[in-house]
């Protein structure tokens, strides 16, 4: 398999805080990778760093390679030609990620015309086809509507159509379902699933919802305080999480089977923001299994199973995992 995206030791610094501290990530062609973590874990910043969408106040370190090319070295023209054509992004809030003053058709065709060199009429025909693909009825007429005439779920479908327009090799979906109703969430995920399946598009799905991630992704990367704490195939991690944080995330997913607990278990405390102390495990203060070593030495990623790695001094054993 060939790697579409290789991220090596990515760091992102803002003037006062460090958002991402040494994240590595590899996405193969057609693969679905999930990045999961709480707010402030650096997952969205990682996604934006890959797209080179961070504001100029951010300092990005490490290496990002896309199909072997050095993304951090792209000049503005190369960047514009790359975004939209080879890589695309779906954002969290479909209410604000479409321009309120431009017709949906304009927003859909501008990428087609620029990247695929289509003429006005051809781009419009293609836009109609795309809108139909994402399940919007009466596509021909809806192209002339403005975003406010669409519901939230419909807008996210439009956004997905825009992202998929030029059949990119990789789509980064940053919390694409978070702003949507639960009933619509599944539809949007199915749509993403279908489109990426058809063109063998790789997907990076960023979410705080391990349930969403595990239903969609082949591989999972759990982030905490700007670092990856556990990574591996979805099935392995869901069946037997090694990191206490992953365990806690899994426990906090509501389940419909078995006895209903009165309250969902939560992770006490909140993740450190910005100044993460070095020389200790970032999760130590909230970890039920923390020991002295966790507070004096930062764990590094190490194999904990045949396919999984975790950054923990005391990974949960089979016995403790059940």
């Amino acid at each position: 398999m060939t790697a579409i995206l290789e991220v090596d030791d990515l760091t992102v610094d803002f003037s006062r805080t460090t958002a991402v501290r040494g994240v590595s990530l590899r996405v193969e062609a057609g693969e679905r990778v999930g990045i999961v973590g709480e707010s402030g874990s650096g997952k969205s910043v990682t996604a934006q760093a890959v797209m080179r969408l961070l504001p100029p106040t951010a300092t990005v370190g490490g290496r990002i390679r896309f199909a072997g090319q050095d993304v951090l070295g792209f000049d503005p023209a190369r960047l514009a030609a790359w975004r939209g054509a080879d890589i695309a992004m779906v954002f969290q809030d479909p209410m604000s990620s479409l321009n309120p003053l431009l017709r949906v058709g304009t927003q859909l065709t501008e990428g087609l015309r620029r990247h695929r060199g289509l003429g006005k009429a051809a781009a419009r025909a293609e836009a109609v086809r795309l809108l139909r693909t994402v399940g919007i009825d009466d596509a021909e007429r809806r192209l002339d509507d403005y975003p406010h005439a669409f519901s939230g779920g419909m807008r996210q479908r439009v956004c997905i159509a825009i992202a998929a327009a030029c059949t990119p090799k990789l789509i980064i979906a940053d919390e694409p379902t978070t702003a949507l109703d639960v009933t619509v969430q599944a539809q949007v995920l199915d749509l993403l699933d279908e489109l990426t399946e058809r063109h063998d598009t790789a997907t990076v799905l960023v979410s705080h919802d391990l349930g969403v991630i595990s239903s969609f992704c082949d591989r999972i990367m759990v982030m905490y305080a700007g670092q990856v704490v556990e990574a591996g195939p979805t099935d392995d991690i869901v069946a037997a999480p090694a990191h206490p944080y992953t365990r806690a995330l899994l426990d906090s997913i509501p389940r419909l089977d078995g006895d209903l607990p009165r309250r969902l278990p939560t992770v006490p405390g909140s993740p450190p923001f910005g100044n993460v102390p070095t020389g200790s495990c970032a999760f130590a203060d909230r970890c039920p299994h923390a020991q002295d070593r966790c507070r004096t030495e930062a764990p590094t990623m190490a194999p904990v199973g045949p396919n999984t790695t975790a950054a923990c001094h005391f990974p949960l054993t089979e016995g403790a995992r059940t």
């Binding site: 992004m89 990620s97 956004c159």
Partner: peptide
């Protein structure tokens, strides 16, 4: 976000 989106579109 719509400007981010426009940039992401290339």
């Amino acid at each position: 976000p719509y400007v981010q989106m426009a940039r992401a579109k290339g």
